[in-house]
Each structure stands twice: as C-alpha cells, then as structure tokens.
Design a protein around this nucleic acid. Structure first.
Lengths: 144, 144
DNA sequence: CCGTTATGTATCCACGATAGTAACATAGAG
DNA sequence: CTCTATGTTACTATCGTGGATACATAACGG
C-alpha cells in the first residue's frame, strides 16, 4: 500500500504540463509536497523504464521520454512497483496436508488472473488522459 | 503485500475439505504452518463477514457458514483486507499547482476502475473451485 | 576554467504495519 | 467440575515506506 505509483503518475502528469521545459526535482517536489530526493529516486526508476529522461546542469531537469499518450498507467506501475504483486502468498504451508502442499500453486494461478485484470485496466489509461482529466477538472472548479 | 488474504483462502479451503467436521485453530494452524492465534484472528474476521462459524467447547472448531460454492474470493478479500485498496494516493499535494490540486480526484477514478476489475476477477472464483483445483493437482502429483 | 545548478545515489532515521507469541476470560461438552 | 477450544488483548521483532541529509558527478554560463 505504498504511494509510489500515485506519486510517479503525479510526476509524469506534471512533466506532461511542462511543454518540454525541464522540471527540476525541487519544482516537482513542490507540487507533490514531498522531498526532492524522493522525487529523484522515483525519476531514476522512471528513467530506467524509459518513461522519463533528464538533463543535468543549469536549466536542467526531468522530461517525458516519449509522448504522454504513449505512456500507460501500466507502464508506470511496472516501473515503480518492483515485484508487481498485489497479493502475497504465505510461505511454508504444511506439505503433509493436501491443502498445504497445493495451496500455493493453486492460489498463484488465481492471483495472477486477478493481477492481469488489474493490469489490463491500468493499460487503458495514459498520462495524456490523466493530464486531460486534470485540466478539465481544473477548469470546472475555476468556473465556480 | 500482506498474506492475510492467502491464509484466509487456505483456511476456508481447508474447512471445505473437512466434510462438516469442525476444525480447531490448532489443526488449521498446522496446515498453514503458523500460529493458532493468528488463525483465530482471521477466523474472527471471516465469521463477522458470515463466511465461517465456530463451535466452542470440546470437539468444537470452525466450519464454513455456507456452501463452498457460494463463497467467492472477493468475499474473502473484503472480509480480511479492511481498507481494500491496492493503491494508496499521496496526501497533501500542493493546491497552488494545477496538477497538485486535481491529481487526487483524477487518480481516484482510475484507481477505482482498476480495483473494480481486480474484484470482478476475484468474484469469478469460489472456495469450491479452489478446493477442486487442490484435489486435482494433488491427484496428479500422487500419480507421479 | 571556475562556480553554479541539478542529478543520481547512498546512508540514516522515525513511523507504522505485519505477523509471531503468550496470556486469559468465556463458553460448551462430557 | 474439568477439559477443550474460542475470542480477544497485549507485547514484540522485523520490515517497508517515506522523510532527511550528504556528496560525487555532470552540464551550463560567465
């Protein structure tokens, strides 16, 4: 139940609103309201996954590595959630018991199916969708 | 990433193989290979959710509260995973930033969709299915 | 060419959740 | 009345998460 996925999406959505101007980790941290080092750690993972890239030096910062419409939430999920497992299976059940010696393999199949369903849904949304949702919602609140 | 869900399914699958004979928490703990107190804590949640019931006293123990074919993995998930949220959303993003003041609501929608997809998949499997898988897998290994 | 900006990474710490363990009051069977 | 077993509480070790600091390295600009 960590917030890495949510923060990573926040970062990429933020980069998506920057029109190609590099954003420093300090700037992003200000939007997320957290530590710049944490942002850099996440950006490092996003960069390794090929979703973001960065420029060092004056005026540098992070950029999207590809079009926001090409980055899905599944990509982000895979980039930041190392083991990518929603459920854990308990270790060392009793092999002398029929349930104990088979539960892990049986559960693995069902959990993988559920995980696949989750990932398929995540794949249907892109960072561009998120950015559009944010802009739409913001114009509505601005109107009130 | 806790194992409560997996252990709870293990417990119910175990009860499903008991043919209506109450199973003590000690017995179940032996199959799961953990502590009886932990089993009782989980059984308490399963009982509150109406999935299991128990008899105190000599010869007592836990029983399924309904037919194994009527209990879905979603029921178990809801019974033991209190908050039932796969993803957490970071708190206190910066309201002065367009992304910061809208990201939570926007992410909430998408995360809820993903969560629904996960739950729909879990709802497709029952404890009876799990018990059948276990029996099938066990007879295969026994044949080798 | 040197100082400034900013990344990338390592380290340390506080906090909370998980799960293992023990203890005990209570309820039911014989 | 005794034995069994539940239901619940409390305590603890361990680990993951996220906050904070530090620093070597890289790029840009005067």
């Amino acid at each position: 139940m960590n917030t890495r996925f949510a923060v990573a999406v926040h970062i990429l959505a933020f980069l998506g609103t920057q029109d190609g101007i590099p954003a420093s980790s300090e700037l992003i941290a200000g939007s997320v309201n957290t530590n710049a080092s944490l942002i850099r750690r996440l950006l490092s993972q996003l960069t390794k996954a090929g979703l973001a890239r960065s420029q060092m030096g004056t005026g540098g910062g992070a950029l999207l590595a590809m079009d926001a419409g090409k980055i899905t939430l599944l990509d982000v999920y895979r980039a930041v959630d190392e083991q990518g497992d929603v459920f854990a299976i308990h270790q060392d059940p009793n092999p002398k018991c029929m349930v104990g010696r088979n539960i892990q393999a049986v559960l693995r199949v069902r959990i993988d199916e559920a995980e696949r369903a989750l990932q398929a849904e995540l794949a249907r949304t892109t960072i561009a969708d998120i950015a559009a949702d944010i802009a739409a919602k913001d114009s509505i609140s601005a109107a009130n």
